[in-house]
Simulated scan of single mutants.
Amino acid sequence: MRLILASTLLFATFGAASTMMPAPAFAQSADEIEQAKQHFFDGQKAYQDEDFDAAAKSFLAAYELSERAELLYNVGKSYWMAENLLEAQDYLQRYINAMPEANNAEEVIEAIIEIQQELATQMATVQVTASQPKLEVFVADEDTPRCKIPCAVSLMPGEHTLSVHPAGAEVIKKKITLKAEEQASLNFAIPGQLLIYSDQRSGTVEVAGSGSYSLPMDAAIGLAPGSHNITVTGPDGAFWEGTVEVESGELSEVSLPMASTIPAPEGQGISTLRTVSFALAGLAVGLGAGGAVMGMQAADTHDTLGQRQSALGSVDAAMVEQGRSQQLGANILYAASAASLLAGAGLFTWDLMSGESEEIPASKPAPKSAPEPVEADDDDDLLGL
């Protein structure tokens, strides 16, 4: 059962002539004294009208102008009547600290104990989790962490700000509003980090849903865990597009060799005449090789005929005809090879002298054929590392 403090508020006298309370810590002007009086009377009226929040604010304004410690009692009592237990406990405790020998000190101490017991019954519990374990959990601006994830944090009803401090990343804050005795949960999605290396001296990295970044990257970018669509463009048409996986609380480093995706500049394709001349040169080599093989076969046939003539005194007419055919084929192939070689040389000379031949446009690599990303390591020798 709630302890009821004395029904009357403490009356504070204002002015230098007062003997009821210690002198204020600073000199008061006449205007400040009048203001403090007015706030005090406003607080009395609001308290009588049962507007306890307004009464607490008026008494607090009077205290801040006068530094009369008795007014802390009035502030605490008003907050208690307004069921703002945390503020009530705070101001009643400040009153006892300032006036430990006050006539009502024992009564106020009992009230503080009762408030603390009532607060304990209203505490809510928040189960705090995160995608990265063992992070310390802070409440509001507290310097000391409450616990390490996963853990439970007990809080009073109302709005609270909880935060975690992942290593190498910015502080993550979340607000939660709690009711008395509520069992709630709060999860922190710890971002991962992505760092892209490339052989391009400049360029742009587009991360879908996140933003645009410049190459070379000076620092890793924070991204939510999961898959991210990445588009990288460099100078002279260098291009890469793909998906990168980012893990919670981890640094993902990706190396992109993009030089091979740069298309050949306009006007530097291979001319038609030069292409034909190279083809004729290749044909000449092939025909010459064929003529050499057939010539060797004709030579073997001639040797065989000579051996038979020595041994038998006669020759085989069919074999003589075969040798003649082989020799004729070899001669034809030699002639064709020479003609192809001369034609190719002529076309090549014509191309060099004219400089205006039709060109075959350089092909542009399709984005889908861009090289796959590779995991970066300490031995990478790419620009931007």
Rank of each mutant, 00 (worst) to 15 (best):
R2M: 10
L10S: 08
A17D: 15
S18K: 08
T19A: 11
A23R: 13
A25M: 11
F26E: 13
A27Q: 12
Q28G: 05
S29R: 04
A36P: 10
A36N: 10
H39Q: 15
F41Y: 14
F41G: 00
Q48N: 13
D53E: 12
F59W: 02
Y63I: 04
L71Q: 10
L71C: 10
V75E: 11
W80K: 09
E83C: 00
L85P: 00
L85I: 00
D90F: 08
D90R: 12
P100C: 04
A102I: 05
V108N: 05
I115E: 06
Q116W: 02
Q122D: 06
M123W: 01
T125V: 14
S131V: 07
Q132K: 13
P133M: 10
K134S: 13
L135T: 02
V137Y: 02
F138C: 08
F138H: 10
A140P: 00
C147K: 02
K148A: 13
A152K: 11
P157I: 05
E170V: 10
K174C: 08
G192Q: 03
Q200I: 02
R201T: 11
S202H: 01
V205Y: 06
S227P: 00
H228L: 05
T233L: 03
P235C: 00
D236M: 09
E241G: 07
L256W: 03
M258L: 14
M258W: 03
S260D: 15
E266C: 01
R274V: 11
V276W: 08
A281E: 15
G288F: 12
A292M: 10
G313V: 05
Q327E: 15
L328W: 07
A330K: 04
N331D: 14
A343P: 01
A345E: 10
S357M: 09
E375H: 11
E375D: 13
G384L: 09
